[in-house]
Amino acid sequence: MAKKSVFYSFHFNNDVMRVQQIRNMGILDGDEPVSFNKWEEIKRSGDQAIKNWIQENMNYRKAVVVLIGEETHKRPWVQYEIKKGWNDGRAVVGIYIHNLNCPNNGKCSQGKNPFDQFNVGYWNMGSIVPVYNPTPTDAYNSIKNNIDSWIDEAIRVRGIYKGTAI
């Protein structure tokens, strides 16, 4: 069976090591990780360069997987990626990653649901987009064993709200 192709959205500075654990599971076909140096180079090139990078990496992806750490909801580019993914017709799903152990920082506090900041038609996006909180005692295996079905559910939900925009 072909792997689902997804775009990962997350707070780079705080969560890149947690996100790398999910990428390394090998279950999904996700965008290739960008190095810290490359991301800094893109950022120095300005907002349009960042938007172009996001567009290029989001192209042909079925879903946007928002990996939610402690401060993800505050990040302007995560907010942009959520809006862009939804408005382009992609499925959107959130997964809390605060219980994944970062080799540098350990675990972190659970962040706020980033979808609560948006409305889709008459609905608050936080009430319609699936968001999962993996088992605290074994977050890694909880994600590994369920991420594929969580994305399937997000695709189903997106079909219900087809044609709606943020």
Rank of each mutant, 00 (worst) to 15 (best):
N24D: 15
Y96T: 06
F36Q: 11
N13W: 10
G111M: 00
F10A: 00
I50K: 08
R158N: 04
F10L: 00
P130R: 07
R18L: 01
P114R: 05
W86N: 01
A63E: 11
W86F: 12
V34A: 11
M17H: 12
G159E: 11
D31M: 10
M125E: 04
D15F: 06
L67K: 00
S142N: 11
I155H: 08
N87V: 05
N141R: 09
V93L: 13
E81A: 10
G30P: 04
T72S: 06
Y140N: 06
T164V: 11
N133H: 13
Y60I: 01
E153V: 07
G26I: 13
M25P: 06
N133V: 13
D47K: 12
E70T: 09
S109W: 10
V16Q: 01
H11P: 02
Y60D: 15
P76N: 09
G111P: 00
G111L: 00
D138H: 08
Y80S: 01
N57D: 09
E41L: 13
N113M: 00
S9I: 01
S149H: 09
V93N: 09
M58I: 07
F12E: 05
V93R: 10
W53K: 05
S109A: 12
I128G: 07
N52D: 15
D116G: 05
E81M: 10
F36I: 07
D15S: 09
Y60S: 15
K62Y: 07
A165W: 11
R75T: 04
K144M: 15
A91F: 05
G46F: 10
V157C: 04
D29W: 14
K38G: 12
P76D: 09
L28Q: 06
K112P: 00
S149D: 07
F115Y: 06
G126A: 01
G30C: 14
W150M: 12
A49M: 02
V34H: 08
R44C: 00
E40P: 03
N99V: 03
I42Y: 14
G163L: 07
L28H: 10
N14Y: 08
N119H: 08
S45C: 15
C108P: 02
R44M: 06
R61M: 14
I68E: 04
N24H: 09
R61Q: 14
I160W: 08
D152L: 04
V131E: 03
H73R: 03
Y161P: 12
Q48R: 14
